[in-house]
Design a protein around this nucleic acid. Sequence first.
DNA 1: CTTTGTGCAAACGATTTGCAGGATG
DNA 2: CATCCTGCAAATCGTTTGCACAAAG
Lengths: 137, 137
Amino acid sequence: MHDKNTIIQSLKSKGLRVTPQRFAVYANLLQRTDHPTAEQILLDLNQDVPTLSQATIYLSLQTLHQTGLVRQVLLEEGVCRYDANISPHHHFRCLCCGKIEDIAWESFSNLTLDKLRSGLKVDKYEVIVEGKCDNCL
Amino acid sequence: MHDKNTIIQSLKSKGLRVTPQRFAVYANLLQRTDHPTAEQILLDLNQDVPTLSQATIYLSLQTLHQTGLVRQVLLEEGVCRYDANISPHHHFRCLCCGKIEDIAWESFSNLTLDKLRSGLKVDKYEVIVEGKCDNCL
DNA sequence: CTTTGTGCAAACGATTTGCAGGATG
DNA sequence: CATCCTGCAAATCGTTTGCACAAAG
């Protein structure tokens, strides 16, 4: 899936040094689909590498985000989640259990930006959907 | 536009007591279109009523949000903005100057949810658009 | 007069910072 | 070996809480 060398190449392609910590954060995020927060990543990684500091997690995520390797997902007040899947897609959040699920980009292939106020240059857009998932229904 | 009695009625209709502080917060938000943060509202109100505590602002906004009188706007990491315009609309954020602008709901009248994974019950959705505004171009 | 809201200050949680030592390219 | 990264602890920022008093209905 995401082999070691590919990950290393991704980091290098952005001019980032490949350190064990940064590698671990990025690799962890790549293999997850649950849109974790910084804290959740820290908890997960500390099971294997108990000497990973909070500051490093936060700095790594900041760096990965700035270089475009990971995406931020902002759905709840005060909660910043991360997603290493940077191919275009949208998000669904269950208002009941809080689960966050990807929505395929093509689900909104009918969405066009034609009628926006002229003068705006659109770089990107995303649809946020909220409701209840099947588990909660 | 938003006359005093209408505001009072809105608050009462949600079972909220009408206090000067709560009224001031809601009225302030109603007359603004800039999607302010709690801090910005505090700064603005403190010019007239210097004895308005932070805690009250935060509590008021929380209350107004919970009762559905105001909407939260989450576009930037760690920044919670508020919007008293609760009629359906979307948001645009300029990546250059940070300005946040409303996008009319009808701009995406072509957006349908047909192809979403079955089993999801959709309560609401919003399109977040990012790019550059005309000022910044 | 009961209940809810406010102000204040302290507490809190998430994130950032300064700095000295360590690892990368 | 110059630069960039990490760990640690302290600092900071936005938000929340506890409590005593005040005001709304």
